[in-house]
Nucleic acid binder design. Sequence first.
DNA 1: CGGCGCACCTGAGTGC
DNA 2: TGCACTCAGGTGCGCC
Length: 277
Amino acid sequence: MPELPEVEVTRQGLLPHLLQRRITTITWSSKRLRLPIPRKLLHESIQGNCIAAIDRRAKYLLIRMQDGSVLVFHLGMTGKLGVFPAAAPKAPHDHLRLQLDNEMEMRFNDVRRFGSISVWPAEQAIMQEEEFNSNKGIEPFSPEFTPANLVRLARRRSMPVKTFLMDSRIIAGIGNIYANEILFAASIHPQTKVNLLSEKQWQKIADCCLQILTRAIAAGGSTISDFLGASGNPGYFQLQLAVYGKKDESCPRCGKTIEKDTIGGRATYYCSNCQTM
DNA sequence: CGGCGCACCTGAGTGC
DNA sequence: TGCACTCAGGTGCGCC
């Protein structure tokens, strides 16, 4: 489920239930996620601590503790975080449960186990976060997300623009669905080599990024009030998609048939009439 | 360095 | 009903 908007909606949904709560007990499954569950660090640094803030960076959620340690979640392809009554029945593929001081608990559920859980203990958190940030790209909602910066990042590269948008070391948070939707909105062909795009075209791409991501967050936001106990599945089904998954359907703009190709190993949908190099 | 292919997993869907 | 196969929204590794 999770690209930037879904992770952001998850953050907003968790916030009112977790803020200022103490984590009393942590339990985990025996399964390995993308990384091994850091059982020792969870016990030492997170259990007994209070939640002071929740931030998002790229597609990661950073749950900040009162003492400075940080609990980091990545949802992978199928990860979900939700808040449940502690007595609610467990679901298959629940991998972590954080019991809170109010008879509720947060649960991390992930069928495919591409997600990850990390802990940055207080005494190393600043350094580990620095290192973490050093290989993450620009946040679309940050002031650095400008056409001039995009031109600079693209200058020495020849990759297709879709691959560029999805490369988390260059731009943070855009995944396959939104890359397809953004390029359709910007009328740019996904195969276009990035070093051939003009600053004006980057302006269009940047504008469409913000528009699409903002709209997706707003669509997901309508489910935030239901977040409790729903193992929040905010997201894609709420948003009107123009091209993603629409092979052989008609383009909403010109009516021509939407095509599907593979770019960088990922399914790519576009209208060859509306989207030009 | 840049760019590609693939592996990591499970489950849903398809065609025979 | 069963089997074999393909595909899925992410990330990071090894290889050229």
